[in-house]
Design a protein around this nucleic acid. Structure first.
Lengths: 174, 174
DNA sequence: AATTATTTGTTGACGCATCAATTATCTCTG
DNA sequence: CAGAGATAATTGATGCGTCAACAAATAATT
């Protein structure tokens, strides 16, 4: 890349970036607070409980949960350990693949997600959906996937290998 | 609040929430990775360096930085300690208010932000702005502030007190 | 069948954010 | 001026996410 061709942000772009950055920080932060206050847990734990309770299957392998949430395996592993200690989930070894496990909600886990869901959904509806009109919701629905696509071009996994090579990715250059 | 009036999300809303949730996680995560790889720092540190370098003043008090970024004081305090240890900033006690301090970038701090800025701005432009058309950018610009407004109604600080009391905040009910 | 590569999941060290508690200074009120 | 309250900033404990290294089992290759 040539010397200093950085396309800096103009004032308008900078203002928008500022807004987005604030949203990126404030929303998850407020969501964690809501869950902490109302249900003594955080977003990560809620997400795992939700995935396990929503799916058609009664048990899932950690890799499935990780894929569903697009999470790091390690993060999930740590979280599952804590959740098992709290009695939210149980693990049994997978018969067909002895590396894997089957993760299942316990009764306490079901109770927890059932009790946490109403206030959490209310939070999302009130703070997020109710703040936006139909057009804005639609715009988010089309805009954000594009950004996510752009991000996938350069992920931590070695998934960089199967992305379009012609288009100047910045996975290791500087 | 009455028994079970939770307005659950329908399929369309759930899909949108899923997208937003993924964006909320993946974007900051990718941004941290970019900064780590290219500049050996993370978003928080970059933000502080940016605020200090952008402002008209050559030095700022921690409270000003915290307000600018809408951060917790404690978070900033910890971060400033680490940044001071790395030689990025210096502190001098404020003459007019002996509780406060003046935070200033060191030469090393200036060098760091100057070197980190191009690739970071490029990341934001390529992954975020370039992925969106003008209409989508405008939509974000109007939509997100509304969400942020809704969030401000219920913050950790005792700022709950000066928000409209008629409108059923959920700061402590359940 | 034997070797290699890939996939599944765990672990430990480390850095960071959060919360509650604390110190020091300032401001307001009487 | 004295005392109550507010504000600036720090501290320590705790929990979480990340990274790199690892162990175990399966899949692919020869």
């Amino acid at each position: 890349m040539a010397a200093d061709e950085t396309r800096w942000l103009d004032d308008k772009e900078q203002a928008l970036w500022r807004t987005i950055r604030e949203f990126l920080w404030q929303f998850p932060s407020a969501m964690d607070r809501q869950l902490s206050v109302d249900s003594s847990m955080q977003t990560g734990e809620y997400s795992v409980l939700a995935v396990l309770s929503e799916g058609p299957a009664t048990s899932l392998r950690p890799a499935d949960i990780a894929d569903n949430l697009r999470w790091d395996r390690s993060r999930l592993s740590h979280l599952l350990r804590r959740m098992e200690a709290k009695g939210m989930i149980t693990r049994c070894s997978d018969a067909t693949d002895r590396r894997g496990q089957q993760i299942e909600l316990t009764e306490a886990g079901w109770k927890t997600i059932r009790e946490a869901a109403p206030s959490h959904v209310t939070f999302i509806r009130e703070k997020l959906f109710d703040s936006l009109d139909e057009q804005e919701r639609a715009a988010l629905g089309t805009a954000l996937p594009k950004v996510l696509d752009a991000l996938e071009a350069c992920e931590p996994d070695p998934s960089c290998k199967d992305s379009a090579p012609g288009d100047a990715q910045r996975c290791d250059e500087d």
